[in-house]
Computed example of a mutant assay.
Amino acid sequence: MFGFKRQIIPEKIGIIAGGGQFPLLFIEAARRAGRSVAVVAHRSETDPEVAKAADSCCWVKLGQLGKILSFFKKEGVGETVFVGTITKTRIFHDIMPDVRALTLWNKIDIKQDDAILRAVAGALEKDGVKVLESTIYLQELLFPRGTLTAKSLSKDQRKDVEFGWKNARAIGAMDIGQTVVVRDCSVVAVEAIEGTDAAIKRGGELAREKAVVVKVRKPGQDFRFDLPATGIQTIQSLASVKGAVLAVEAGQSLLFDREAMVAAADAAGIVVVGVVENSDGSLLID
């Protein structure tokens, strides 16, 4: 008798998509891994091209948790990822929580990034949807170690990076933000809900020029969501205030459009460097 191989249909993976290019990149990577994709797209955030690229899509407004859960159940989704950005200030003026979201919201004591995202992830997993690390198919997007630009750090800039690193780690521990802007070992701006680009512009204006931007992961950063991310827009923001340095934690953050980003940094005379923190707290900067 002839034997017939049973065709195994790849399991569908869910994508909870925000803004930016990450959702599209993830769809492409998931397809290369042989998986179909069901996308939850956020209105006013997600690029419509993401919906077009998906095998199925459900548009939601911020806070419609019940709709997300129902869509994933209908699509047979057992795993999902959070990819892309959500404008955090929208929680004050553009959110439409449903019953599931309100119930969850009332159980969260501290309304900050990690607490909110962990609570949403918990609700998904309670419904049988496992939340995976957002870099599962895109390890190549992790920020590399070392100097990426033609220009290297000066002695004084290295001191600013070391100083900024400790402060960035401290605000991360409090779940305030991931970025600080420093000059001459003085903190001129701390990232909060406004986001990295706004913090860079505010800090750069205060520093007047030569600002050093340090961006790190939060202590205990959950790789399933809210990884630090940089790209050409970060350089453009820094260049607009005549900033000097972008130092990012290597292997713990995302880097988009590397070639274009480095080219823009070189054109503006900005140093871009990926830094590693040793177990003893010392830094590997070069």
Rank of each mutant, 00 (worst) to 15 (best):
S279V: 14
L238Y: 00
R35A: 12
I116R: 06
R183T: 05
L25D: 14
M174W: 11
A211L: 06
D286K: 05
F22S: 05
D222H: 10
D94T: 05
V99F: 04
A168H: 04
G204Y: 08
I8W: 13
A41L: 10
G78N: 13
L104E: 02
G251Y: 15
D257P: 14
Q157A: 00
D127N: 11
A115R: 04
S56K: 07
K52R: 06
K107M: 00
F22C: 00
V216C: 03
D286T: 08
I235A: 06
K130P: 13
F223K: 03
G195P: 00
L104C: 00
P48H: 00
V213P: 01
H42V: 15
F92G: 02
D94H: 08
L254P: 13
T103A: 04
T179N: 01
G3H: 14
P10I: 03
E277N: 01
D184P: 02
A173F: 09
V83M: 06
V188I: 03
L62K: 08
S134E: 14
E11S: 14
Q252K: 15
L238Q: 00
A53Y: 02
R169W: 10
S186N: 12
D109N: 07
L117N: 15
Q157D: 00
A247E: 04
G243A: 01
A38F: 07
L65Q: 12
L246D: 10
R90K: 14
T196F: 01
V181F: 07
Q178E: 04
E249T: 07
Q252M: 15
K74Y: 12
F225T: 14
P97A: 05
V60C: 14
K111I: 12
T80I: 12
L132E: 14
V99P: 08
I9W: 13
R258D: 14
I176V: 04
S70E: 13
I285V: 08
I27R: 04
T135M: 13
L124V: 07
M174G: 09
K61H: 13
A260Y: 11
A41G: 06
K111V: 01
P23K: 01
D184A: 05
K210V: 03
K5F: 15
I232W: 14
F4L: 05
R258C: 03
S56L: 02
K5I: 15
T147V: 15
D197I: 03
G19Q: 12
I193T: 09
S70I: 03
A121E: 07
A33L: 03
A115D: 09
V37E: 12
V181A: 04
K242I: 05
G243P: 08
S253D: 08
K201S: 00
D197H: 10
K126I: 11
P48W: 01
A199C: 07
G195M: 02
L117G: 07
I270L: 07
K52N: 01
G220V: 09
L254V: 15
L132D: 15
P48F: 10
A170W: 06
G3F: 14
